[in-house]
Amino acid sequence: MAFAIRKKRTRELLLIWFFLAPSLLIFALYRIIPLLWNGVLSFEFWSPYKPAEFAGLYHYEEMILYDDVFWQSFWNTAVFMASAPIGILFALVIALLVDTPIRGRNVYRTIVFMSYPVMTVAVGIIWQWLYNEDVGLINYILRSLGMSGRGIPFLNSSTYALPAVIVASIWQVVGFYMIILLTGLQNIPQSLYEAASIDGASAWQRFKRITLPLLRPSIFLCFVIGIINSFTNFDLIYVMTDGGPSHATELLVTYIYRVAFKLGQFDYAAALTIVNFAFFVFLAWLANRLSGGEAGAVEST
């Protein structure tokens, strides 16, 4: 009897592993193993033509003590991240507007959202043209308004390049933020606002005391996406500025690419990746912690 049960149990286990195996295999092959290997690599001297040699903390020391570009790209990544609230604020205003019963709100929603599914490379090229010193729309407007005599070379200026790229990035993601916030808004039952207005809350008080607190999980989700975005926004930077001028728009992710595939220092790039990864995990943990582990959750009555 017990034997029969055990046999059945074994068969069930076999079946479970049979179904899990393919995805586990792929996950291990493309995620776990590269990550582990990357970790090992960061403690070695390694190049494609030489046998590996143990390097200890050499790369990390190099990075933290002597590499100004690392610190520049670290700082740029942080600035990129810190710009997320601006995008979220924009998105919140838009979401509130298209949540009101205005005529054609679905059209507005679609238009605002449409920037998101556009290929990032296309977004980069569009904004490159908009920022163009001679024929760009933005410089044309500035000149027409008499605000600048000569064109501003936005993407070639070490002052303007980072803000310019951030604007393009926000433009692309704002539609996505809006959809998240709009979903959050629509999940707040109308009766709460009715109850609050009977309770004597003004429109502002209803926003502050009902909408904002109940939207908190959605806002945090946007933050997390903003953080991820600042770590993965490789394509936009690559197309628009390639990290230049003189690393003014270098993010950690573009710097890692440059070190690995242009300078061929895979071992150093591996160390950068580990730092990048640790930084990211720390922020994700922090964001989740601050949101009480409920990013994206819908609070129900």
């Binding site: 039952p189 009766s191 009715e194 009555t301």
Partner: peptide, 9 residues
């Protein structure tokens, strides 16, 4: 209210 409309937060 029918759904009570309590402030969940």
């Amino acid at each position: 209210f029918q759904d009570y409309a309590l402030y969940p937060h």
